[in-house]
Write a protein that binds this DNA or RNA. Structure first.
Lengths: 211, 211
DNA sequence: TTGATTTTTCTAGTTACTCCATTTATAATG
DNA sequence: CATTATAAATGGAGTAACTAGAAAAATCAA
């Protein structure tokens, strides 16, 4: 069953920690929505989640991270690092997008709330780009493995970043439409505009010729 | 004399303020270099620039902004908003890059210092993207004026962002090479890889046909 | 000089975040 | 089950970025 994002098995302790983490995030997002990001203090979040303020920092290094945290991240990560090398890159890319659609259906509201915050609060918007840069490095390393180039290769990084930028702008547009349109469709439109698919296949075939 | 970036005329008071602002930035950058960004306090910067700590915040809203501040920004801005509509977009784009080369020659070291900081300090790196998003909106509005589309048009924003992303990755690469290579050349390479030029001209001619 | 305005400075907060020591809960072992 | 190891939660004391607002000082206009 490809292109399905499912939780990873964890020990009892780990699961409990994850639950606390999600509780903190849930309460924090609620408070942010009610009274705004800046007006909400760590103390209030801790009180709502029934932990001490110190404990908050055991789970999230900063107040920003409580918004950025995404429980699907590790799954998406493992999914991306175990891609089939048999299909062309563009096909893999579209496959990933279908996986994304699944997540969207399951967690539409939380994703929208987090995305909106990341859009509206400047420091979060800024931090979000950090995450994108991490993703860029991941994608670049995947491209590197497939083409035999170095992961720090300039062109690979540019391509990876073009991919992510197009995706990001699509998400922005989706939020501007208040989460009502089809996000995955918008992403595909942006990727086509940037002609990312052909560019990826080009890269792959060019490398095959050389080696 | 096109493609030359020159200071804008200012009143006496304004010039004095600008001088103070630059002094603060100069001292701050020196201290950051000597003892690191996090280890340098506003108090120290204020002392070095011979102002009170309160005054610091009259000039820069946050510690981060002291790194982000670029005295060429208003010039570049006015340059971009007064582009000739006679030439095709791709030509204008390359023209701008030549202008950039001039600035690089004049202020290579300060630019490198600021860029390095923005690369190495995570919160600055994040903030830098905010600036890029501002630039995106500016470019989108220029494209909008030329094509008769709306400035919030999805495709325009994607294109503008692709342009900036390519440029940004080129600058990153330039810093990774410690400012030794030809930055403008790298930028052109990235833009060609993304095929931004053709894409821009495509957009323009497509619009002409329609109206 | 006088008065208006801008700029700087001071004071007194608030809050995110750090460090470290202590206590409490959980799991592993004999 | 009792003991021990380990990990997680907490408390307290401190730092530094930033805010608001009032007072003082410098600058400019008439």
């Amino acid at each position: 069953m490809p292109n399905t994002i499912t939780p990873v098995a964890l020990g009892l302790r780990e699961r409990k920690k994850l639950k606390t983490k999600e509780a903190i995030q849930r309460e924090a997002l609620r408070l942010f929505k009610e009274q705004g990001y800046a007006a909400t203090t760590i103390e209030q979040i801790a009180a709502a989640a029934e932990i001490s303020p110190s404990t908050f920092f055991n789970y999230f290094p900063t107040k920003e991270d409580v918004v950025l945290f995404d429980r699907y991240d590790p799954m998406i990560f493992s999914m991306m690092t175990s891609l089939p090398a048999s299909e062309p890159l563009s096909a893999v890319m579209y496959g990933l997008l279908d996986g994304l659609a699944g997540v969207m259906e399951r967690d539409h509201d939380v994703i929208l709330a987090r995305s909106k915050l990341s859009l509206e609060v400047p420091e979060l918007r800024a931090r979000f780009w950090e995450e994108i840069e991490k993703a860029r490095d991941l994608i670049a390393s995947i491209l590197a493995a497939r083409t035999g180039r170095d992961a720090s290769d300039f062109e690979l990084r540019v391509l990876a970043m073009l991919f992510l930028t197009a995706t990001f702008e699509a998400i922005l547009e989706w939020i501007r439409r208040d989460g009502r349109g089809d996000m995955v469709k918008l992403v595909k439109q942006a990727l086509d505009l940037a002609q990312i698919g052909p560019r990826l296949d080009e890269l792959e075939s060019a490398t095959r010729k050389t080696r």
